[in-house]
Design a protein around this nucleic acid. Structure first.
Length: 261
DNA sequence: AACGGAGACAACCGCAATCTG
DNA sequence: GCAGATTGCGGTTGTCTCCGT
């Protein structure tokens, strides 16, 4: 049996054209049929690679943007050399492209800063673990919260009766779950002597490290800086606006204001 | 102008996982 | 369940271009 001799090396425009035409007619896949059906003297692997990395119409050409670069850095710290996994977070970019970009831009630097990379990796791991733990806690709290709702209504009602406090926010009823009152959940025109302030005494406050005095170890908090900022009207604020309104940023959980049903 | 080094990108290779008959 | 085919992935190499000397 005569071994098929496959062409190697750079692709020609004509080969590209044949491959594009093949995919247009037959779709992606069955790459080993390309040589027969399209008359290409390339093996299936080569055809697939050429299509995936170069000819696919949804590919984004051009330089990696700073934003994409930061995503690559972050995901590489998280996943390591799992290029295809990283590529899934960057629409239009291929694993090969990201791999090449990493090698040319970061490999050398990474060598020099192996220790830093380890630190970042460990920090991200801590962050991840914290988030997971927090999610579990939140789920538990929300379950408790459901059981506690009637009881809470009574407490609020009692507080209002005792202090003659009337709600002045003009909106619907707003309830702050245990551990969940933070400055970012306070509406505009927030009155420090309002009901919610009083309610804080009922719950264990969240222990929030100050952003300006954060140590390396509690840097896990900084992941929350990137969450959406929700203003008192339910809209999103950018970080600058939020800082102007609320002062230096503190960690928060923006979805922790739970209205009564 | 010629040369060499570095960067960027394309393509190949080997292996493992998955699919298919 | 199994063997061969196919596909996907990550590492590596090859090629081209640019730039400094």
């Amino acid at each position: 049996m005569v071994e098929e001799v496959w062409r190697k090396g750079p692709w020609t425009a004509e080969e590209d054209r044949l491959l594009i035409e093949y995919v247009r007619v037959h779709g992606e896949g069955r790459w080993n049929s390309v040589s027969k059906l399209a008359g290409l003297k390339r093996n299936g692997k080569s055809c697939r690679l050429r299509w995936v990395n170069y000819l696919r119409p949804d590919l984004k050409r051009g330089q990696i943007t700073p934003h994409e670069e930061s995503i690559i850095l972050e995901l590489h710290a998280k996943w390591g050399n799992r290029w295809s996994t990283i590529a899934r977070s960057l629409p239009g970019r291929t694993d090969n492209e990201i791999k090449n970009y990493w090698r040319t831009h970061f490999k050398k630097k990474a060598k020099l800063t192996t220790n830093n990379a380890e630190k970042i990796k460990s920090r991200l791991l801590k962050r991840q673990q914290f988030k997971e733990q927090r999610e579990i806690e939140l789920q538990q709290e929300q379950q408790l919260f459901q059981f506690d709702q009637l009881d809470m209504k009574k407490i609020i009602s009692l507080l209002e009766d005792n202090n003659s406090i009337s709600s002045s926010d003009g909106g619907g009823d707003v309830f702050y779950a245990p551990h969940q009152i933070t400055h970012s959940s306070k509406p505009f025109g927030y009155n420090p002597n309002s009901l919610e302030e009083q309610l804080q005494g009922r719950f264990t406050p969240v222990n929030i490290p100050d952003a300006n005095t954060m140590s390396e170890d509690n840097a896990i908090w900084d992941g929350f800086w990137n969450m959406d900022v929700v203003d008192g009207n339910g809209g999103n604020m950018d970080v600058v606006a939020a800082t102007a309104t609320y002062g230096p940023r503190k960690p928060y959980f923006h979805n922790l204001v739970i209205p009564f049903c």
